[in-house]
Write a protein that binds this DNA or RNA. Structure first.
Lengths: 206, 206
DNA sequence: GCTCGAAAATGAACAATGTTCAAGAAGAAT
DNA sequence: ATTCTTCTTGAACATTGTTCATTTTCGAGC
C-alpha cells in the first residue's frame, strides 16, 4: 500500500478536488478574512456538496488547519531562500522577507496565528512546531556571529528575536488608522534589528 | 439632559444589568475563550432575554468590543502603576507587568488582539488608539534615558519596543507543547530589554 | 460486458447560534 | 387613573456548521 498519491483515476480525482477545495478556501481567507469562510461557499465554488468537504477534511477546522499548514510551509520556503553569505545581511533579510510575506498575505498569517479551535481542543502541535522551526532560521546566522555563545541560549535568542519582529510587524500592519506604509515599517524593522545586534556586541555594517 | 449615569431607578437597573452582562461575558471569555462566548449563555446567566442583550449593545460584537475596551483600560491602569523613579527599572517593570497581566488574562488579551469584525467592518479606532496609548507608556522613561534623541523617533521607538515585547510574550505563552514557564519568559524578556537598551547605548544596571 | 461490493458523493435534515420584531409589560408623565 | 413612552420578552427567522441515510460511482472478479 502506497501512502502517497495513489495512481488510480479515482484517487487522482479525489486528490484534484482536495487541492481545489484548499485553493478556494485559501482565496477566501486571503481576500475576505477567516471569518468570511463558509462551508457552503467553498462547496459551491468547488462544484461539490458540503458532505464532500467533510468527507475529505473531517470538519471545517480541518480545512482551515490545512491551509494554515501550507501557509507556514510557504513562509518557510520563502525564508529559506534568503541568501546566507553574510550572517548580518541574512538576519536583516529574514526580517525583511517576513515583513514582505506578511504584507502580501496578511489574512493568511492572521489565520495562522489567530485561529482558535472549537471548545478548547489544542491547536495541532505540528503547526506550532513548524512555526517555531521557521523562527529558528535565525539560529545559524546568529551562531556565525556569536560563535562562542551557548548554543541553547542562541536557540532561545533566535526564537525571541523572531517573535519580537513578528510582534512589530503584526501590530504595525494592524493600524488601518494612519495606514503605516510598509516602507516605514521596513525602516523600523531594520533599525530594530541593528539595535538588537549592537546590544549583542555586533557592529552594524550598513 | 445628563449624559452620564442618569439617576432614575429605571436607568440604575439598566446600568446594573449592563455591568452584569459585561461581567458574565468577561468571565466566559477569560475562562473558556472568545469562541465559547454565546449570546444565549450570557442572557441566561444574566437572567434576561437575548433581546435585552441586543437592546443594550446593538449586536454581539458590541459586547465583545466593550469587554475589550475594558481590558485595555485595566491594562493601562496596571501599567501606569509601575514606579517611575528610575527609568531603567521602569522599562523593565513595564515589560514585566505586561507579562504578568498577559499570563493572568491570556484569553482576554487574545480577544483584544485577535477578534475580527463581521464582514470586513473596521475594528473601532478608539480601541486601537487605546492600545497604542498603552504602548506609548515606554515613551517617558525612554525620553529620560535619551534626552537628546528626536522626540518623534522616540515615540516610534516606544511603540516598536512594546510591540516587540508583545510578540515575545504572546508567542511565548502560546506553546502548550513544552509549556514555557512564566519564570523563563520573565528572564527572556529582561534579557531582551537589556540587550535592546545596550544597543541604544544605555548600560544595564542590574 | 455484467455483477457485485466497497467507497464516495449527495443534499436534505438537524443543530447551534446570531438577529429581528411584534406584542406585551413596566414605568413615567399628566 | 389614564396615557404615553420605553424597555423587555421570546418566539420566529437567518445563517452556518454537522450528520447520515440514500444514491451514485467505479473498480474487481468472473
Amino acid at each position: 500500500m502506497n501512502n502517497v498519491q495513489e495512481e488510480s483515476p479515482r484517487d487522482r480525482k479525489k486528490f484534484r478536488r482536495r487541492l481545489q477545495i484548499l485553493e478556494i478556501a485559501r482565496g477566501i481567507i486571503a481576500s475576505k478574512g477567516l471569518r468570511s469562510l463558509k462551508v457552503r461557499d467553498v462547496a459551491e465554488a468547488a462544484g461539490c456538496s458540503v458532505g464532500s468537504v467533510y468527507n475529505e477534511f473531517g470538519d471545517f477546522d480541518g480545512v482551515i488547519l490545512t491551509v494554515n499548514r501550507e501557509t507556514v510551509q510557504a513562509l518557510t520556503t520563502r525564508l529559506a531562500g534568503v541568501p546566507a553569505e553574510d550572517p548580518l545581511h541574512q538576519l536583516h533579510g529574514l526580517a525583511a522577507t517576513y515583513l514582505e510575506f506578511f504584507a502580501e498575505h496578511a489574512n493568511l498569517l492572521r489565520s495562522l496565528f489567530e485561529h482558535r479551535m472549537e471548545d478548547d481542543r489544542p491547536y495541532p502541535d505540528d503547526i506550532l512546531q513548524m512555526v517555531m522551526d521557521a523562527f529558528a532560521l535565525m539560529h545559524p546566522p546568529l551562531l556565525r556571529l556569536l560563535p562562542d555563545a551557548d548554543d541553547v541560549k542562541l536557540a532561545l535568542l533566535s526564537r525571541t528575536l523572531f517573535s519580537a519582529v513578528h510582534g512589530i510587524i503584526s501590530l504595525g500592519l494592524e493600524e488601518r488608522m494612519v495606514a503605516v506604509p510598509p516602507q516605514m515599517l521596513r525602516q523600523q524593522i531594520d533599525q530594530f534589528v541593528d539595535t538588537q545586534l549592537a546590544g549583542l556586541g555586533i557592529l552594524p555594517v550598513r
